[in-house]
Write a protein that binds this DNA or RNA. Structure first.
Lengths: 337, 337
DNA sequence: CTGAAAGCGCTTACAG
DNA sequence: CTGAAAGCGCTTACAG
């Protein structure tokens, strides 16, 4: 481990000058700068991050808050991997690294300050929050502590926070208009958990689009789901048992939609002839299960990229946090409609 | 940000004593220890991680090397999420955090030392490597630099490294024996990339089990795939074009197996009557696509847990790295066989 | 059991 | 454009 002192000695300058070469290069003379840089490469000098962080209070690390719901540990985010890739790539382009923050399962007290503590402890510059629908107080604490935060699919509000979300209402409307074009008039929905932002907004968009098309909506045609496959299955069974069974269903999540399709098929119905189904997300399976799940696609890498951009803007940027980003959605028609 | 100095002042002791309370509590008197602890909780004191790391050279952070293959950026690990959850949970139980290391796409030179550099720079205690099949020199550099490393599905060898893998050969044998029991005698395989450890080992196990059953294996019945869906599709088409078309195929990855099933169905074959297919991994879709993909299940969280344990053993442990962990696999029979 | 002091490797006003 | 010096917040022999 060669240190700045060693590099300074070898270059015949003070440590201050070496430090400047790496921090404010424009301030040191072209000649000595080059000499130091060459020598640094030669002896493999690397500034020690901890020392730097200690001196500057900036770590160039941002926390990733991604907890599994402890009540439903098996739950998988529909496209975590795509988000992670895009996020990591975009952040590293700005010299930022991602530190995964431990959640509930961690050793120690599971209190509402655990993320704030982690941020303070590691001098994190900010945090990216992936919502898991649990309304975790520890997440809100982060926002309240005025840590620069960007949340995905979770509406947070504060002087140092913003969020990224898809155009959930618009996407739902896309789905409804598609079903209407296909001639459906009795359209039901299986929603996400209404306490989540995507769950709530997709229902809003669904209702609005139905109203816009002049179609009625029976109360029994709105069933709250949970984003899980089994939940979609159960909800569909309830719809199928109805006297005024719908001819089409907007299922507000592909995972649930897969469950719903299975329920319909198990009931002996043909898709899309007896019942049409359209989902939301465009996860990989959507294309794989027959007859192919029509769906509303989200811009998956867009979440990661937008989150990184918003965070960087907050770290370098001015007083106000960036406006929330709303990513457009697109209709993907497959065999199920 | 209250510091150790502040806490010391308030408690009426030296910073050294406060430090000991958090590092070697047994060495300070019960009474003062309690007083300091109480006060610490009251004023919300947290040791500064950077200062600690600077002084001790230990960061309690481990690097996560998980690069997407830049030639195939769309590739998703079959069960990254399960690994991540288990890894994060197990590490945090030991007070370790995971820092995601930027890969190819990062700004700056994409050289073979980039992971080693990141480790030095952040004083990482070790690294967990998730193989992406690219034989990245930067990964080997990590092993050679004697950073404590545990690799998943990548055989690394060094005084500070070990690896975790499934019983790939055993799993393949499980699949073959199942097919043989079903009465198949003309069994082909679509392998993974043979440069990868799982790809190679599953073929070894396949051959051995076939030989054990006294069955012949035509060269044309071994096709090297790439773990991708399209690759499985293409490979299956080649098998179907054969004069001595197999009656069963062991496809060494579920993603490929799904592609293979589609190819068979597109060719008008019934599964499993005309051709039986068995995969490897047990990814989520396996249960979802009709008629259900029989497969060899890997212990997904086991990778994360075992990796954490191995790493912790190396960090605290003795001279020799832990022996490689080989996770057992299990047969999952569904409709495709 | 406790304290004084040196040291970890940087950065950054302050002078010059 | 450069250097000397203080400081960032800890830990840990060394004494006592």
């Amino acid at each position: 481990m060669t240190t700045i002192r060693e590099l300074a000695r070898r270059s015949g300058v003070s440590v201050a000058t070496v430090s400047r070469v790496f921090n404010t290069p424009e301030v040191v003379s072209q000649h000595t700068r080059q000499r130091i840089l060459d020598l640094a490469a030669e002896i493999g000098y690397l500034p020690n991050g901890s020392a730097r962080t200690l001196a500057t209070k900036k770590s160039n690390m941002v926390g990733l808050v991604w907890d599994t719901d402890h009540r439903r540990p098996g739950w998988r985010h529909p496209f975590l991997q795509e988000i992670l890739v895009a996020l990591k790539t975009a952040l590293s382009a700005h010299g930022l690294n991602l530190l995964m923050l431990a959640g509930h399962d961690a050793a120690g007290p599971d209190d509402g300050q655990r993320y704030v503590r982690a941020v303070r402890q590691h001098n994190l510059d900010g945090a990216v929050i992936i919502d898991n629908g649990t309304r975790d107080p520890a997440v809100l604490a982060l926002v309240e502590a005025q840590v620069p935060c960007v949340a995905l699919d979770l509406r947070v509000d504060g002087p140092t926070s913003t969020y990224i979300t898809s155009d959930n209402a618009g996407g739902a409307a896309l789905a409804v208009r598609h079903l209407v074009e296909r001639g459906h008039r009795r359209i039901a929905t299986i929603t996400g958990p209404l306490r989540t932002w995507p769950g709530a907004e997709r229902l809003v968009g669904f209702r609005a689009a139905l109203a816009g098309a002049g179609l009625p909506l029976a109360d029994s045609h709105v069933i709250e789901g949970d984003f899980y496959l089994d939940g979609g299955h159960a909800a569909m069974n309830r719809l199928l048992a109805l006297d005024d069974r719908p001819t089409a269903v907007f299922v507000a999540g592909d995972e649930m939609a897969v469950g719903a399709m299975r329920a319909a098929q198990a009931a002996g119905l043909r898709i899309p002839d007896d019942i049409a189904i359209i989902g939301f997300d465009d996860i990989e399976v959507a294309a794989l299960i027959p007859p192919g799940l029509s769906t509303v696609a989200q811009n998956k890498p867009g979440f990661g990229t937008a989150a990184a951009e918003a965070l960087v803007a907050m770290l370098h940027g001015g007083d106000d946090p960036p406006k929330p980003t709303v990513l457009p959605t697109t209709l993907v028609v497959r065999g199920s409609t």
